[in-house]
Lab assay of single mutants.
Amino acid sequence: VKVFRALYTFEPRTPDELYFEEGDIIYITDMSDTNWWKGTSKGRTGLIPSNYVAEQ
């Protein structure tokens, strides 16, 4: 598990995607895809765009 911080707010387009706000901490559990990672924030899990976060 790696810890990342959201650089921007992300509004999901599908139920599989995770909503998060700029500054949120996201725990990444799967980075197997280059563009979409699986992450958890505020008790919810979903896909996030990798270019919206920076490693802490």
Rank of each mutant, 00 (worst) to 15 (best):
V1G: 13
S32M: 08
G23A: 03
E21Q: 12
Q56S: 13
L47H: 04
Y19V: 04
G43R: 03
L47E: 02
Y19D: 07
D30A: 05
K38C: 15
E21P: 01
W36K: 03
D33I: 05
N51Q: 11
T40G: 06
R5Q: 09
V53E: 02
N35Y: 15
I48Y: 01
K38P: 04
R13A: 11
G23S: 03
Y8P: 00
M31C: 13
Y52E: 02
G46R: 01
G46P: 00
T34R: 14
D33S: 08
E21W: 04
F20R: 01
T14I: 08
F10E: 00
L47P: 01
V53P: 02
T40N: 11
F20D: 00
K42I: 03
E22P: 06
Y52T: 03
Y27Q: 07
A6R: 01
L47K: 10
A54W: 10
V1D: 09
L47G: 02
T40M: 14
W37N: 00
P15K: 12
T29L: 14
V3P: 08
P49Y: 05
R44E: 06
T34M: 14
F20E: 00
V53K: 02
L18I: 08
E55S: 09
P12G: 07
G23K: 02
E22H: 07
P12I: 06
L47F: 12
I48P: 02
Q56I: 15
F4T: 04
V3H: 07
D24I: 04
A54H: 10
K42Y: 09
F4H: 04
G23W: 05
F10H: 13
P15I: 11
V3T: 11
F4V: 11
T29P: 01
I26N: 00
A54V: 15
K2C: 14
I48T: 02
G46L: 02
T34I: 13
Y52R: 04
T9M: 06
D24G: 02
E11I: 15
F20P: 00
P12K: 03
V53M: 11
R13K: 12
R13N: 12
V3R: 11
G43V: 02
D30M: 06
G23Y: 04
R44G: 08
Y19C: 09
T29Q: 09
E17G: 11
W37M: 03
E22G: 06
R13S: 13
F4E: 00
E11W: 15
S32T: 14
E17R: 05
L7E: 03
E11F: 15
Y8T: 07
G23E: 03
Y8S: 07
I25F: 09
K42V: 03
S32W: 06
G46C: 04
W37L: 05
N51T: 12
D33A: 07
T45K: 09
R44W: 05
S41N: 12
S41H: 12
Y8V: 07
Q56P: 10
P49G: 03
T45A: 11
T40I: 13
W37T: 00
G23F: 04
E11H: 15
G43D: 06
M31R: 08
K42P: 01
N51G: 12
E17P: 00
R5P: 00
I25V: 11
G23L: 03
V3Q: 09
F20H: 00
D30K: 03
T14N: 14
S32I: 11
T34N: 13
R5E: 06
I26Y: 01
F10Y: 15
T14V: 08
T29I: 13
G46N: 01
P49C: 10
M31W: 12
Y27L: 12
P49Q: 05
I48R: 03
M31F: 09
T9Q: 06
N51H: 14
D30V: 04
D30L: 04
L7Q: 04
N35T: 13
T34F: 10
A6M: 02
G39A: 09
Y52G: 07
I25M: 09
Y8M: 13
K38A: 08
P12L: 05
K42N: 15
R44M: 11
A6N: 01
V1T: 12
